[in-house]
Design a protein around this nucleic acid. Structure first.
Length: 486
RNA sequence: GCCCUCAUCGUCUAGAGGCCCAGGACGUCAGCCUUUCAAGCUGAAGAUCAGGGGUUCGAAUCCCCUUGAGGGCACCA
């Protein structure tokens, strides 16, 4: 239920284009999206590009690609804050006029010196209010010197600011612990605090769902709403996604950019399911939920308050589950791009789709990610097998017996007709019995001979798909390899 | 240093006073199935509910303290 009745749910995801989308960013987007869809509200995309110096080229595009990849479609936007500068500037002026903000001419050097001194005195760092009460004349002097001022918010010196967090409950800050933060930078761009509240107000945002790291700036935002006489939205601070060291996710935690998961062959649905469970749960046993179920059941009440360590092994498991659930056509469709990209260059492109269609069912329950498929199936596509000769002749067999077995098998296989898995199975099982050889050893030898691997999909189906010619050719090649004259 | 938040198996979590000497999932281990690898099935190990005080007939659940962890304190978001 929306916290404010009669107010339509409008939420936003507001990334800044300063890097590639993170698991954490995406999870925030996801919760916003789920919340909007659950309440039949709007999900808005807003780009907070107010830091000219940190802008990364292509970041927005990657962000949007990632959202779309996961199926997180937005209803409005993207809006760009860099195109709305006058809005923030006007608001800043209004705040100055009403006595809630002031111009500050302090140099970066002075601010740094103040900070150093505060650190030395073991005081909390923060602006000392130097320009808070400049006279008309002092300001004129600064202007005359050509100093571009910033606009600072005039923090109340006493009292406290409280807000109700939908996930955490009441949170209170003493105003004296907060200093006069900057609203408008000297280049005319707003800081996050200003742009954020102006846009949330103008865009009629009903709920702000954002990461935990924002709680301590929320009182500043509340105070700004009050100064502007605007009604603040509801706040809900989401638990963060942590690295294995329990610290805030960053580049040093390895693969955290969402597009890497796409490249590693994870399915959007698995990703969405898994990410939702990082900080939200339905009950004490449900792990697998479809997108619709997620939308239907999602609620802020069931969002947890503790940070969650991202556990890739469990993601792999879940992705395997989703992979196995795919119908054969979808599976091939998903797998093909990975095969095209991952198979050795020597394999002729484009791949024979009919052939691919026959192979894929054999690996569907064996791969945890799409990216594993090429290495699981490359022997189907390669002309020349390259493998470790150590795996021949195989456990419990010496070269002489292996050779004899292969010769007999070869002879027998030449007569197999039709070359399908049933005929192969009956022929080879009989032969195995005839040779008084355990199926383990016998099929194992054939397996390595025909595939160059010790672990493969079931032997008969594999041979059937490989075809008679290729299978026999590979068996002969092994005999060559084993012969002493070599 | 100051402020805020959080605290249940290795990890994700269930639990909103008695149903809990704590349930599920991943992972781990063992067994079954089996031509290998997977998948599947069965079972096991794994949390003195961070520690200490209260409140209560009764606390993982409420209160206080301690400790630990995380986040914030920028002309970054």
């Amino acid at each position: 239920m929306p916290a404010i009745p009669n107010r339509p749910v409008r939420v936003r995801f507001a990334p800044s284009p300063t890097g590639y989308p993170h698991l954490g960013n995406i999870r925030t987007a996801l919760f916003n999206w789920l919340f909007a869809r659950h309440h039949r509200g709007k999900f808005i995309l807003r780009v907070e590009d107010t830091d000219v110096t940190r802008k990364v080229e292509g970041a927005i595009e990657t962000m949007m690609d990632s959202l779309l990849w996961l199926g997180l479609d937005w209803d409005e936007g993207p809006y760009f804050q860099s195109q709305r500068l006058s809005l923030y500037q006007e608001t800043a002026s209004r705040l100055i006029e009403t006595g809630h903000a002031y111009l500050c001419y302090c140099s970066l050097e002075r601010l740094e010196a103040v900070r150093q001194e505060q650190m030395k005195q073991k005081q909390p760092p923060g602006y000392d209010g130097h320009c808070r009460n400049l006279t008309q004349r002092e300001r004129a002097e600064m202007e005359a010197k050509g100093i571009k001022p910033v606009v600072r918010f005039k923090m109340p010196l006493e009292g406290e600011t409280t807000f109700h967090d939908l996930i955490r409950g009441q949170i209170t800050f003493r105003n004296e612990t907060m200093s006069d933060f900057i609203l408008l930078k000297s280049d005319g761009y707003p800081t996050y605090h200003l742009a954020n509240i102006v846009d949330d107000h103008l865009m009629d945002i009903s709920h702000v769902l954002r990461a935990d790291e924002w709680v301590s700036s929320t009182p500043r935002h509340i105070l700004l709403y009050q100064a502007l006489n605007w009604q603040p939205p509801q706040f809900a601070h989401l638990p963060m996604i942590l690295g294995t060291d329990k610290a805030k996710l960053s580049k040093r935690h390895g693969a955290t950019a969402i597009n890497e998961y796409q490249e590693e062959g994870y399915l959007p649905d698995a990703m969405v399911n898994f990410l939702t469970l990082l900080g939200w749960s339905l009950d004490d046993h449900t792990e697998l939920l479809s997108r619709d179920e997620l939308i239907q059941h999602f609620s802020l009440e069931r969002v947890s308050r503790t940070g969650a360590v991202f556990n890739k092994v469990k993601l792999e498991w879940m992705n395997g589950v989703y992979l196995r659930k795919l119908n054969p056509e979808e599976y091939v469709e998903r797998a093909t791009p990975f095969l095209e990209r991952g198979l050795p260059p020597s394999v002729r492109r484009p791949l024979d789709l009919t052939y691919v269609n026959r192979i894929m069912p054999l690996v569907q329950e064996r791969a945890k990610t799409l990216a594993e498929i090429p290495q699981l199936t490359d022997f189907f596509f390669m002309d020349e097998l390259s493998y470790d000769t150590e795996i021949l002749p195989g456990k419990g067999l010496d070269t002489t017996t292996a050779t004899r077995i292969l010769e007999v098998a070869l002879q027998e296989l030449e007569t197999v007709e039709p070359w399908d898995s049933q005929s192969l199975e009956s022929t080879l099982r009989q032969l195995s019995a005839g040779l008084s050889l355990s199926t383990g050893k016998f099929f194992g030898l054939l397996r390595t001979s025909v595939t160059g691997r010790t672990a493969t999909p079931p032997l008969f189906q594999t041979m059937a798909i490989l075809g008679k010619e290729t299978s026999l050719r590979r068996l002969r090649a092994v005999l060559q390899k084993l012969s002493p004259s070599q």
